Simulated assay, not measured.
Amino acid sequence: MHKVTLIKGDGIGPSIMDEAVKVIDASGAKIEWEEAYAGMSAFEKFETPLPDDTMISFDKTRVAFKGPLTTVVGTGFRSINVALRQKYELYANVRPAKSWEGVKTRYDDVDIVIVRENTEGLYSGLEHYLTSKKDIAESLAVVTRSGSQRVIEYAFKYARDNNRKKVTVCHKANILKYTQGIFLDVARETAARYPDIQFDEKIVDAACMHMVMNPQQFDVVVTTNMFGDILSDLTAGLVGGLGLIPGANIGDDAALFEAVHGSAPDITGKNLANPAAVIMAGVMMLNHLGEFDAAKRIKTAIEKVVNEGRYVTPDLNPQSKVGTKEMGDAIVGAMA
């Protein structure tokens, strides 16, 4: 039995997480859920967006399954997601973007995995004003050889373990010669140890252009924190949007799985939210836990439902009257 910290989150979080839990439980996976709180819902209950009990649970289970969170203004937390990633050294953010037969987009055969460094770079939070008038601000981008090494090594191992053919490093070392230079140097050194994996390097702005013109040339992409944030949203747009994109945050001894979209307060309580992204994050979690059969059952079922396009939420089919709960029921039914 695998113990998992369950954080339902804010806004549409509880509704989509309820469907994800229902689907995972129906798959036969051996999961014991330990519910905890974070975000606005936690702040309202405990006057803190990240209660000690939540951290205690994650400390114990080392695996968390999380819905979208609302960052509470004025609490000292820049981002709860960033706080969790940094505390538990969840250094690899993995976001697969794959085309769905039932979702009409500009391309039919996109299959890209973004591996983003998750703890350093411009998101390190080292920023300050240089004058008392606060008219000049400075942010420091921290890139370390050790931080670069672990995420790039993860990307190459991921490629090998998942029968991927190529790893592309995206960088800006032509301008940022020290910080991006370290990242690129480590990527080249690591690639030499993986002769079975094709290696490519692209300057990030050119990579964006190539990704829009010919996304099929990309397979696994590894990059620094902010570039990965941008590129992963770009790849989401290629396959139908953030409502279809799962995310995993991987460390050496802990992992957090989530939908990467926001809490969507405008549709909260309306039974309209698409649960696909967080259910696919659940598939990633089950694979991480070694529940491969259950993961395959869910993946096959959700692909069937989305590709048929009948029992899906209106964002996937504007003619649909199906809601969050009914889509979850359809995925459970497809497993049967």
Rank of each mutant, 00 (worst) to 15 (best):
V167T: 08
A273H: 07
F199W: 06
K60N: 13
S320I: 12
A92D: 12
G269D: 02
H2K: 15
E120M: 08
E308I: 08
N274M: 05
L126F: 13
D233L: 09
L122Y: 06
G76T: 06
K45M: 12
K270Q: 14
I182G: 04
T268I: 00
A187Y: 01
V21S: 00
E19D: 00
S232K: 05
V143K: 03
V169G: 06
I112Q: 04
Y37Q: 09
M40N: 05
N317F: 11
M226W: 01
P265H: 07
E153A: 12
G121T: 03
L286M: 09
H288I: 10
I24T: 03
N274Y: 06
V204A: 09
D161W: 06
D53F: 14
V204K: 02
S139W: 02
D111E: 07
V115C: 10
D108M: 05
E89T: 10
A187H: 01
F58M: 15
D229E: 14
M284D: 02
D205L: 14
I279C: 08
G240H: 08
I230P: 07
G262E: 12
R188G: 04
K133Y: 08
V115G: 03
R62M: 05
G309A: 08
G262L: 13
T70P: 01
I112L: 09
E117T: 12
I112D: 01
K30E: 12
P215E: 06
L289S: 05
G333K: 15
K299R: 15
A236E: 03
V82G: 11
I182K: 13
S99N: 14
L272M: 14
I197H: 06
G240P: 03
R150C: 07
I152Y: 00
S79G: 08
P96W: 10
A295D: 07
D109P: 00
N274W: 03
D109W: 00
V103Q: 11
